[in-house]
């Protein structure tokens, strides 16, 4: 950013001279913070896209979408996240955490969603940390063996908690296409997750708010499982088996059924 004030115009008093140097420091900090905010915003958008993409798993071929999501996240790591790591290199990350935590949380949400689809479990912090660690980096400014983006536990936990909403969407959407297993699995997982979080004493209003949202999501999934049970109670056993096995046929084709 070029300054319109020509430096020759500035009176050469000690005060003005020190403020000139303060300006340099402040600008450096603000510019870095601004760059991080922009990176964070792009990361947020791209992470949301990955989540949207993964929701198509209820409709389309699952493994292909997972592969695509893997690729998208990997390219996000190698581009935007590597830039974040470079920006943070040598800094006290807590000075800039506010600038990139939103992107970080949304990224954790996307990664954990993908991980759940693969492993039906919570993504470990170590995996996220590894993904955000870069080796043998050689940028113009920095040449170093290893740089990484710090992932504070609280921000990780905040991102994870958002996973609840996405799993809830997945559970309800699954029922819509006749998949009755996924909702039950998600219900059990979300209960364990909620119990774990309830015991986690990190006094943080954001956490409390998100915990409330998580509880609502869990409640919606429980109601969905309840409905499944109730509905299942009426179906003739053999029909139910047919239904479950034909998960991928999304539409109710009346003609086919007539056969």
């Amino acid at each position: 950013k070029s300054h319109k004030y020509k430096d020759d115009d500035i009176p050469k008093t000690p005060l003005m001279m020190s403020f000139t140097s303060y300006r340099t420091d402040l600008d450096a900090k603000h510019d870095k913070s601004e760059r991080l905010v922009k990176l964070s915003r792009d990361i947020t958008i791209e992470s949301k896209r990955v989540i949207f993409l993964l929701h198509r798993t209820t409709k389309e071929d699952k493994s292909n979408l997972i592969l695509e999501a893997d690729k998208k996240l990997h390219s996000l790591e190698q581009s935007h996240w590597k830039n974040v790591a470079l920006e943070l290199h040598g800094e006290d990350i807590y000075l800039f955490l506010r600038s990139y935590t939103q992107g970080l949380q949304e990224y954790v949400e996307a990664v954990s969603f993908l991980y759940y689809l693969k492993h039906k479990d919570l993504v470990p912090l170590s995996i996220v940390k590894d993904s955000l660690t870069f080796h043998n980096v050689d940028s113009g400014a920095v040449t170093t063996k290893t740089i990484s983006v710090e992932v504070p536990i609280i921000d990780f936990a905040l991102g994870l908690t958002d996973l609840g909403g996405e799993l809830m969407r997945l559970a309800i959407n699954s029922i819509g296409v006749g998949d009755f297993t996924t909702p039950k699995e998600i219900c059990s997982f979300l209960r364990a997750f909620y119990d774990g979080l309830m015991n986690f004493r990190a006094t943080n209003w954001q956490m409390n708010k998100k915990l409330q949202v998580l509880r609502n999501s869990l409640s919606k999934v429980e109601n969905a499982c309840y409905t499944l049970k109730i509905r299942g109670s009426e179906a003739p056993k053999e029909l139910l088996r047919d239904l479950v096995s034909s998960v991928s046929t999304t539409t109710c084709n009346t003609d086919e059924y007539d056969n």
Partner: peptide, 14 residues
């Protein structure tokens, strides 16, 4: 809304 409709369709089919 979709779930509700799916439930209706399910009820019809079974």
């Amino acid at each position: 809304d979709i779930r509700k409709v799916e439930e209706v369709v399910y009820d019809i089919r079974i």
